[in-house]
């Protein structure tokens, strides 16, 4: 199964689970959680189901293309389900089976992982899912996002595509993964890894990045003052990436680090608050739609639960 087959299988699987196949977001980010499809949609009462692939940048994880599975640029497959279905673990395992990984012949474990993103002011509880010892997915029930309580609880599944591909294709190095028939991951990305690692660790212009950070922060704040929360959030994401670059460059002290994180989090919180208020102002449109749908097809499942809880 090539990497692109994996993506197609996951798309297929989650599409049948009524997920919207949204697309990657065109801003550098460290994880699929930053994509507005997760960060913003997790807020407020509106239901949401989405699946998308997300390119991620983690400058500190660059290894000049030397490490078999650490990259400064990689892909996550992200699924967001809100509210969290009660059979979400089973759904997840089925999605894994759809990739040709039969859980009956492997050692799949759910290992405690208390997820926290200090820059997003977000945390949740869940697991890292290990397939024969390899972490292939982060599975998180969001409790707070942008400093706001997540209600209803949103569940986030983040698949490490490269690792799963390595496993399925039985290769020991990510660059040996077949992206598509006859084309390897290495052919596509090795050179980028070398060049970006060199840039991230050695040549990134610290002064320029510091200034850009400040400018982006101001831009975000300015936009928030005009209630332009969606573009404002773009600039919040940008500050996060710039901070990651500075971190990789090894030029920020522990104290400064905390300060930068606090600044990014400050923006994220303001965006979260403003976004929720805006959706409320719009009357939570997706919620209306959901209520309408439910009214038309009252599922037998729901009815049974109601009776049970009365007893």
């Amino acid at each position: 199964m090539t990497l692109q087959d994996l993506i197609l299988s996951l798309h297929q699987f989650w599409s049948t689970q009524h997920c919207i196949l949204t697309q990657p977001y065109d801003t550098e980010k460290g994880a699929g959680t930053f994509n507005p499809s997760t960060f913003l949609r997790a807020l407020g009462p509106e239901p949401w189901r989405a699946a998308y692939i997300e390119p991620c940048r983690r400058p500190t994880d660059g290894r000049y293309g030397d490490n078999p599975n650490r990259l400064q640029h990689f892909y996550q497959y992200q699924v967001v389900l809100k509210p969290a279905p009660s059979d979400v673990q089973d759904l997840y395992l089925k999605s894994i089976a759809s990739l040709g990984i039969n859980p009956r012949y492997h050692d799949i474990q759910f290992i405690q992982d208390d997820w926290e993103s200090p820059t997003l002011g977000a945390w949740g509880l869940g697991w890292e899912v290990r397939l024969d010892g390899m972490e292939i997915t982060q599975f998180t029930y969001f409790q707070e996002v942008g400093g706001l309580e997540v209600d209803p609880v949103t569940v986030e599944l983040t698949y490490g595509l490269e690792r799963i591909a390595m496993y399925v294709q039985e290769v020991d190095h990510v660059f040996d993964v077949q992206w598509s028939e006859g084309v390897t991951y290495g052919q596509l990305y090795r050179e980028a890894e070398v060049q970006h690692s060199t840039y991230n660790f050695e040549l990134a212009n610290v002064e320029m990045i510091r200034h850009t950070f400040d400018a982006n922060e101001r831009e975000c704040q300015q936009l928030l003052e005009h209630d332009l929360v969606i573009p404002a959030y773009d600039y919040c994401m940008k500050t996060s990436h710039l901070f990651n670059l500075l971190d990789a460059r090894g030029v920020i002290s522990v104290a400064e680090r905390t300060e930068y994180i606090t600044r990014v989090r400050g923006l994220a919180r303001r965006c979260a608050k403003a976004y929720t208020a805006q959706r409320e102002g719009l009357g939570f449109p997706l919620l209306q739609q959901d209520v309408a749908q439910k009214a038309t097809k009252q599922s037998p499942n729901t009815r049974r639960v109601r009776t049970a809880s009365r007893s």
Binding site: R70, H106, D107, D132, M166, D172
Partner: peptide, 19 residues
């Protein structure tokens, strides 16, 4: 299969330590 999986993961981990 399970053993090989664990061995591969560890090898990558140790590779990182070596880095």
């Amino acid at each position: 299969v399970i053993r090989q999986g664990h061995e591969r993961v560890l090898s990558a981990r140790l590779n990182d330590a070596q880095y």
